[in-house]
């Protein structure tokens, strides 16, 4: 497989995997603790491997998630595009941070995502504060080091 095709295949399988993880039916106990996998993956690739994605592809992946999960069309797409752009702009600073600082940056980005969700829901008149969304942001930040290592490992395995 040539280089570009291989990249394309890798990134879209990662994106589809995270979408599947976000919509697959889970038992009731686990259902509340659904981590924002797609946001995490997009943040990771926008910081550490910008050759794989761009804002447009991120936006389309968000649109797919919106339609699969039944939320307003464009809601997750907008949030992902903004998160991707911000992570890209500050990628040089973030890359050299120690891990705990990267975790703080991820916390800030994911919280921004939650705030945009609240704003959109507020405008469309369906704003309900769900504590689990914020718990999941916390868990996502805590598992970030493992998540990052796994993705780095996968990158080194699939892309030369």
């Amino acid at each position: 497989m040539n280089h570009q095709l291989r990249n394309l295949f890798f990134i879209w399988s990662m994106i589809l995997l995270s979408i599947i993880l976000m919509v697959i039916p889970l038992p009731d106990v686990l259902d509340q603790y659904r981590l924002p996998w797609l946001k995490m993956a997009v943040i990771f690739f926008s910081i550490f491997n910008i050759s794989l994605i761009g804002i447009i592809s991120v936006w389309f992946s968000g649109l797919i998630l919106d339609i699969m999960s039944g939320s307003l069309m464009g809601e997750n797409a907008l949030i992902l595009a903004v998160l991707s752009y911000l992570s890209y702009r500050f990628r040089f600073q973030i890359r050299i941070y120690p891990m705990w600082q990267i975790m703080i940056v991820v916390l800030m980005l994911l919280s921004l995502g939650e705030f945009i969700t609240l704003w959109i829901h507020g405008v469309s008149g369906t704003m309900f504060f769900n504590i689990y969304d914020w718990i999941n942001v916390g868990i996502a930040v805590l598992v970030w080091p493992i998540f990052m290592r796994v993705l780095e490992k996968m990158q080194s395995l699939f892309l030369e």
Binding site: I53, I55, W59, G74, L78, I120, S124
Partner: peptide, 25 residues
């Protein structure tokens, strides 16, 4: 890869999303 992440693209995408959300609502 600069052009993949340009601010213009972000702006366009944000506008399209807002239009889509409004229409969907």
């Amino acid at each position: 890869f600069e052009k993949n992440f340009s601010a213009y693209r972000l702006l366009i995408v944000v506008i399209i999303s807002c239009v889509l959300m409004y229409q969907d609502y």
